[in-house]
Structures are given as structure tokens and as C-alpha cells.
Design a protein around this nucleic acid. Structure first.
Length: 452
RNA sequence: GGCGCGGUGGGAGAGUGGCUAUCCAUCGGACUGCAAAUCCGCUUACACCGGUUCGAAUCCGGUCCGCGCCUCCA
């Protein structure tokens, strides 16, 4: 039972061997808090939440760090645009992020450091890079000197020459090398700034993750995750900073999730096709959104269409129906197929398929002990994936304040059927169907659920 | 231009050199007062062209198509 993980560094699956089997350490890049999270932001959160749950099962101790980026030019721009104070924007957005991710069933990380709380560590690290000749001050900025690191580009497989050739941006005049990137930059009076040896300023784009991962996980740790679009430049530069400041290896396994696309295009603000988690949660329960994200393998592109949520909901309904009919049970060991699928580089689609096979076996089984075992197995698999956490009947009944009224109609119909007044029974069923309520007559009574 | 990813049945989506997941939808059967749910079954896919092989959707080469990164971005 070994965990296999795709390592971006090798572009291949590798057996996971923790630096310290007694304590596995995981860092995932968190949000820049300037706007509501969209479904693309949610993908890494949910994917790495499954990894976190799996690691916790496999190892005695796991520390999961996910940062909050609360100093960034996008935040500054938003504040300038709307006039809302920066602290309010970041506080409000952080709160919304927490609420949205909790709705998706994501466990909170063990540590959630904020960039503004670690400026001192960043300055310290930059000083070390300058002292060691990996960075230099120029025109109020401090820049990382890319040629000072011979194997720069190992993660993204971009050579320095290629980067320069492909550069579509103007190279700032103060750069010694076109590939050099900013560690520290000066702040005008009206922008957030902190004192530093190079004057009042703020950190560059990548140094925060280097400083915070070191603060909580040490100079070398096991897994660093994030979206594929972070491979370059963010993670490449982060790796360069950390390795040059503390020496290799920094991170053993880099894991990146694929993009989420909407109708063939990558979701982005400029295309105006952004789906916020909040909007989606208005249309479907959090678990349905979560399942939609886990139904495709994390490295594959995931197309989020109009039907994606409804299909995820339908799949969950099937599992919840099986659980409802099985009665209450405690989570138990998941089916081996579920665990095997997850151990193979987080193959959640295969794990979910195995859950459906468990559900089929449960629906078919008649022996009470067997049914209890299968229901427990299904719940155990759900716990590992962060699914099936709701009460089955409550899930199937859905949201609405008309439950009592529905129950009354159902009871009335049961009475009508008992007296073989099928015309009355069918009329009640039609009434309920018109309200989106489907009935399921079983040997032990009539269940109802909100359909569609 | 450089680097990289992907093309699987009506839809979604795994996977393995030969035994052809799983879910949704459709259709048929069982069950049901009738339905719904459930179970059983049906539909038998792997972009294209070559090659390797007893055998490839799965390995190799090429072609076409779609997408991403190289710029803030999960």
C-alpha cells in the first residue's frame, strides 16, 4: 500500500517517500484575497483536501500549510478602484473564502499563515540572498539574479534563454538579466509598505511562499501543491529563492492540478466566464460541487459545463439513496478498490466508480450483516473523499420549509392507497410531482425526495 | 517562436497489450395497483495513417484537431 504521486519535477509518477515518516509536511498555495473564489480556485483546495485526508490516514502526523496572500498589487488595485480600505477587502474576502471552502467540505489546513504576518522573515531571506550573491539591489528594488542559479528552470523546463526569447514584456531597465525577478519593491506613500534595508517597500510576487513554508515546515518538506499555472513563474521562482537561500532539496514532490475550463476556454476574468463558488452553491449543495471537481482526475483538464453540477448531484443522489435504504451505520473501512485508486496518484474518478460498485452491491444485498458492512464501507469511502457527510434522508429531502406539508400529503396518500383509493393517491402524487417532489413506495413506507 | 497537455461509446469519465470500469441519458425485462426507486439486460467506444506484435484503443513513428504556459492567474 504505497502512495504514488505525480511529481512535476520528473513529469512522472513516483512512489511517495516522506522525509520523515512520522511527520509528513504539505504546502499548498492559497488565494490572493481580493475577490470571491471561483470554481477554478476551488479545484486545488478540494484536490489537496483529498490528499490531506489520505495522508492523515497513512501517516501518524501531517502538517498542512496553506497561505493567504493579503499583500498584492491586485488587492491594491481593487482598493484604489472601489475606495474600500485594503484591510477590509482582505478580511472580508478571507472570510468568504473560508465559508465557501467549508461548504465544499474542505478541512481547514493546520496552519494558514498570512503574508503580512511574515514580512520580517521575507526581509531576512532576501538579505541572505543578497549576501550570498543571488540577489542585488537596483533602483530601490531587490532582484533575484537568475544566472546565479545554474539549474534555474528545472521545474518548468524553461531555459533562461528561452524565457528571454519568449518574453512578451518589456524588460525593466534596472534588471541585470532579463529573467531576473523582483524580491522586494519600493512602495509609494499611499501603498502598503514595511521598513527594510532597502527602504519602505513591499515583497515581490514569490518570496512569501518561500518564507512561510520555511517558517512552518522547515527548509525541506515533502509536497508542494497548486494549480498548473503556478509552475511558471511562481513555483520556479519560489524554488530558486529557497534553494539558493537554504540549499536543496526544498521540496521533494511538486504536484499540480490541471485547469478548469468553461465551454472550451480557460475561465478568466477577461473572458467574462468566471463561475464563483458562491453562485454554484446557490444552485447545488456543496457536496455536488465537490463531486463535480473530483469526477475528473486532478491533472486532467476539467470542463465545467451547464450539466456538470446536475450530473454530480444525480450521482450523489444514487449513493445517498442506497444509504438511506440501508439505515444508519457508522463509517468503516472503505472497499480496497477505493483506497487503491486514491493511492495511485489520487485517482478520484476510479475511487468514485468503486463507491458506485459498493452501492450496487448494497442495493442488491439482502443479508442484514452484509448490508451493514457495505453501508459502512461506503461511508468510509465517503469520509476519505469528503463526500456522503450529510444525513441521507436530509440530503434527499433537500432545502425547503415545506417538509411538514409534504409529509402530510404523503401520509394522506399512504392512507388512500391502503383503502385502495388509487385515484386519490395518484392525484396527490401528481400534485407533489408538480412541485418537484418524487415519491418512492417501498415495503417500509413511502420516501420522498426533491428531484431535479 | 519555445515548452507542455489532451483527443475514449449520446453525455461525463477511468483504465489495461488479449478477459472491453463507473455514472448520467435512451431502450427492453423483472418488481409495482400504476409509477418512482431498485435489480437485470441492451447499445460495444477508444481522432487519422503507418509500424511492432499471435494479438493494440493500450507500445513506436507520423498526421490532423483542440487547449494551456512563456504576462497577474488555481
Amino acid at each position: 500500500m504505497t502512495l504514488i504521486v505525480h511529481n512535476t519535477l520528473a513529469r512522472a509518477k513516483e512512489p511517495f517517500e516522506p522525509l520523515d515518516p512520522e511527520h509528513v509536511r504539505l504546502y499548498v498555495c492559497g488565494p490572493t484575497v481580493y475577490d470571491l473564489a471561483h470554481i477554478g480556485n476551488a479545484r486545488p483546495v478540494v484536490v489537496f483536501d483529498v490528499l490531506y485526508r489520505l495522508l492523515k490516514r497513512l501517516y501518524p502526523r501531517v502538517t498542512y500549510v496553506r497561505n493567504i496572500t493579503d499583500v498584492d498589487d491586485k488587492i491594491n488595485a481593487r482598493a484604489a478602484e472601489t475606495g474600500e480600505p485594503i484591510e477590509r477587502i482582505t478580511a472580508r474576502t478571507t472570510e468568504a473564502f473560508h465559508a465557501d471552502m467549508a461548504a465544499l467540505g474542505a478541512l481547514p489546513p493546520d496552519v494558514e499563515p498570512r503574508a503580512t504576518g511574515h514580512i520580517g522573515e521575507m526581509v531576512e531571506m532576501i538579505e541572505k540572498l543578497v549576501a550570498d550573491g543571488h540577489a542585488y539591489e537596483a533602483d530601490g528594488h531587490v532582484l533575484f539574479h537568475v544566472p546565479s542559479m545554474p539549474d534555474y528552470g528545472r521545474l518548468s523546463r524553461h531555459s533562461r534563454e528561452e524565457l528571454i526569447a519568449g518574453a512578451r514584456v518589456d524588460v525593466a531597465p534596472y534588471k541585470r538579466d532579463p529573467a531576473d525577478f523582483v524580491l522586494w519593491k519600493p512602495s509609494a506613500e499611499d501603498l502598503p509598505g514595511w521598513p527594510s534595508p532597502w527602504g519602505r517597500g513591499r515583497p515581490g510576487w514569490h518570496i512569501e511562499c518561500s518564507a512561510m513554508s520555511r517558517a512552518y515546515l522547515g527548509e525541506a518538506f515533502d509536497i508542494h501543491g497548486g494549480g498548473a499555472d503556478l509552475i511558471f513563474p511562481h513555483h520556479e521562482n519560489e524554488l530558486a529563492q529557497s534553494v539558493c537561500a537554504h540549499g536543496p532539496p526544498f521540496v521533494r514532490y511538486w504536484m499540480h492540478n490541471g485547469y478548469l475550463v468553461v465551454k472550451g476556454d480557460k475561465m478568466s476574468k477577461s473572458l467574462g466566464n468566471v463561475l464563483t463558488v458562491r453562485e454554484l452553491l446557490a444552485d447545488a449543495p456543496g457536496e455536488a460541487v465537490r463531486l463535480a471537481l473530483l469526477q475528473a482526475h486532478y491533472r486532467a483538464p476539467l470542463e465545467f459545463g451547464r450539466d456538470t453540477l446536475a450530473e454530480a448531484k444525480a450521482g450523489l443522489d444514487r449513493l445517498y439513496r442506497a444509504l438511506r435504504d440501508a439505515g444508519a451505520h457508522e463509517p468503516a473501512e472503505p472497499a480496497p478498490a477505493v483506497l487503491e485508486a486514491l493511492l495511485d496518484d489520487l485517482n478520484t474518478p476510479a475511487a468514485i466508480a468503486a463507491m458506485h460498485e459498493t452501492a450496487t452491491a448494497l442495493n442488491r444485498a439482502e443479508d442484514a450483516d452484509e448490508r451493514a458492512a457495505l453501508a459502512g464501507s461506503l461511508l468510509g469511502a465517503g469520509a476519505l473523499l469528503g463526500l456522503l457527510q450529510a444525513d441521507p434522508t436530509a440530503w434527499l429531502h433537500g432545502e425547503g420549509d415545506d417538509a411538514a406539508e409534504i409529509e402530510a400529503l404523503v401520509a394522506e396518500r399512504v392512507a388512500a392507497r391502503r383503502s385502495r383509493d388509487f385515484a386519490r393517491a395518484d392525484a396527490i402524487r401528481d400534485t407533489l410531482a408538480a412541485r418537484g417532489i418524487a415519491l418512492e413506495d417501498g415495503p417500509d413506507g413511502t420516501a420522498w425526495r426533491r428531484a431535479g
